[in-house]
Design a protein around this nucleic acid. Sequence first.
DNA 1: TCATTAAATTGTT
DNA 2: AACAATTTAATGA
Length: 231
Amino acid sequence: MDNSNTKSPSLLGAVRSASWSIGLTQEELARVESTVIERRFAPGSLVCRKGEPVEYWYGVIEGLLKLSSDAESGKTASLTGVPPGGWFGEGSLLKSEIRRYDGVALRDSRMALMPRQTFLWLLDHSISFNRYLLTQLNERLGQFICLLESERLLDTDARVARCVATLFNPVLYPGLSRKLAVSQEELGYLTGISRQRVNRSLKILQDAGYLSVAYGGITILNLDGLRKLGS
DNA sequence: TCATTAAATTGTT
DNA sequence: AACAATTTAATGA
């Protein structure tokens, strides 16, 4: 039905199809391809840890991540989910500071890791890469502003809507079809809402025509509508 | 290809 | 959190 027929993308395939690599020269692309590595992560394991030095720029080849920040009080704030095709960590790399959030694999995930050195080299050599980063940073900023609002002001259904809408962000996660294989339990982890409540919200959103729920995944029918629920 | 079984996910309380 | 119902995936004839 969904992308189960899709063969597992290779590391280099993921790099070449990434939107930031399209404008690179052969030389630049070659440098990226010779330094990027792949790593697997089991469900629940930490891809990157808050407080540690930032050594890589991360891309999701396959799987699903949650970026979250655990306060010392024990409260955990989920920042965003990252589906396949998403790259993150550029903010911390640019500022050369320690990482400010955890990256947790919600299921078996394959990650592409671009060394910091390569990332900075691209920054110095490729105009199109810089342009990509601008749009990426801008888009993410908009997401976080919406996130702040939704955490405080919106009801649970709208928070679920926002979470789903961010997963389908065409700028940050291009090439994603309107279908995404994400279980209701995983959405619960992403939103910090119980699976039961997510189930209820999804049904409401489905009845309202924004999306359709199916076994093991959802299909977006009205992305703009979902966004507006959160604004 | 089809039937059976196990595992994952959903729907409900 | 627990439970039943449903869907998928795996297995073997």
